[in-house]
């Protein structure tokens, strides 16, 4: 009953307290970075982009085999991965109580005895953000108050992104007003597939304006984009339009975060950074369930972008059950034995 009361805080009370807190949170997550303001759309650059698919696939295939982390290094990397997780629930059957439990897990993602055994109690291990539908933003904002964990909302007719543009923009504004610190938006894949990059640019620009102080992650829906060249072009256009993060997928496409797509997107981020000096973040999302996968993504970030991109201000993993496996691996490191997944419940 107590938990139930928590999400039934009157709307007026929330409106009074939330915005200040959200600004604080945003500042903590993005301490010194200047946000990417975007650039004018450079169509020549976008159209000239080429991606050699077989070379990218080869690079992606060797990333997990050329670098590895073992023992203490692996445990530390897994803790770092946790701090980069956007702990996510985006299901039709989400309920406020589910969201509350998810938020509780977000605040204490690893069992205390394991953290003690790892000597990691002082690291302040918590997830990067909690990511949910607009409807649950107030619940999460309330539950995470004072924790420093940002609330992210998927707010543009997620996952298809085909609602009328004015409604999508209104949805962003509503989520921001409800206290979301980060907004995950989706591009209209039809524009990208048609090569109408102006339309993608204008749309994302409008989303960014609606986000205001909230950070914007642009979902490209890479599983729908057909070619890696389209992924590269969509990445550049999203960054030119002012994305704070570019994100692979909604998690609802047939194919979600894959390493080849990650190779292309991180290279585009590197290129954008070299050209403009602005560091844009990267978020793979969907289908990542094993601790090993998380390590592979961290290795990709370290190799293609460098150590600066290994923290939550520039790297997120959109996942939920991933955390369960990471906790299992940490328990194995501590005890030498594997526990069943149900001993590390998520919600």
């Amino acid at each position: 009953m107590e938990t139930k009361r928590k999400y039934e805080v009157p709307v007026e009370a929330r409106a009074a307290t939330v915005p200040a807190g959200s600004v604080e949170r945003a500042l903590r997550v993005h301490p010194r970075e200047e946000r990417n303001p975007g650039t004018p759309l450079d169509l020549d650059l976008v159209r000239a982009l080429r991606v050699n698919r077989s070379a990218v696939e080869r690079r992606a295939a060797t990333i997990p085999t050329r670098r590895t982390v073992k023992r203490e290094w692996q445990a530390a990397w897994l803790l770092r991965a946790i701090t980069c997780i956007d702990l996510t629930t985006l299901q039709g059957d989400d309920t406020p109580t589910n969201v509350l439990r998810l938020c509780a897990k977000a605040k204490e993602p690893v069992r205390r005895d394991l953290l003690e055994a790892l000597g990691a109690t002082d690291l302040g291990i918590r997830v990067g953000a909690v990511c949910l539908y607009h409807a649950f933003v107030p619940v999460a904002v309330q539950a995470l108050q004072g924790s420093g964990i940002p609330v992210a909302a998927v707010s543009t007719g997620f996952p298809a992104g085909l609602n009328p543009l004015p409604q999508r923009i209104e949805e962003i504004k509503a989520s921001v007003a409800a206290g979301a610190d980060e907004i995950d938006v989706v591009i209209t894949r039809a524009h990208a597939l048609a090569g109408d990059w102006e339309a993608v640019y204008d749309e994302v620009r409008a989303f960014r304006a609606a986000c205001g102080a909230a950070h914007m992650k642009v979902i490209l829906g890479t599983g729908d984009l057909a070619t890696l060249a389209n992924v590269a072009r969509a990445s550049q256009v999203a960054m030119m339009a002012g994305a704070d993060f570019i994100k692979t997928s909604t998690g609802k496409e047939a194919v979600n975060a894959t390493l080849p797509v990650g190779v292309v997107m991180t290279r585009m981020i590197r290129d954008y950074h070299e050209r403009t000096g602005h560091a844009v973040g990267f978020k793979p999302a969907g289908g990542m369930r094993s601790a090993k996968t998380a390590l592979q993504w961290l290795i990709l970030m370290k190799e293609e972008l460098g150590d600066r991109w290994l923290k939550a201000d520039l790297f997120r993993l959109g996942a939920s059950s991933l955390l369960t496996d990471i906790e299992r691996q940490l328990e194995h490191f501590v005890t030498g034995r594997y526990s069943a997944a149900h001993r590390h419940p998520m919600v």
């Binding site: 982390v69 023992r71 203490e72 445990a75 530390a76 990691a120 690291l123 290994l310």
Partner: peptide
């Protein structure tokens, strides 16, 4: 230590 590696993110 794990906490040191958490900061350096070295491969080891």
């Amino acid at each position: 230590t794990v906490s040191e590696i958490f900061e350096t993110m070295a491969y080891g």
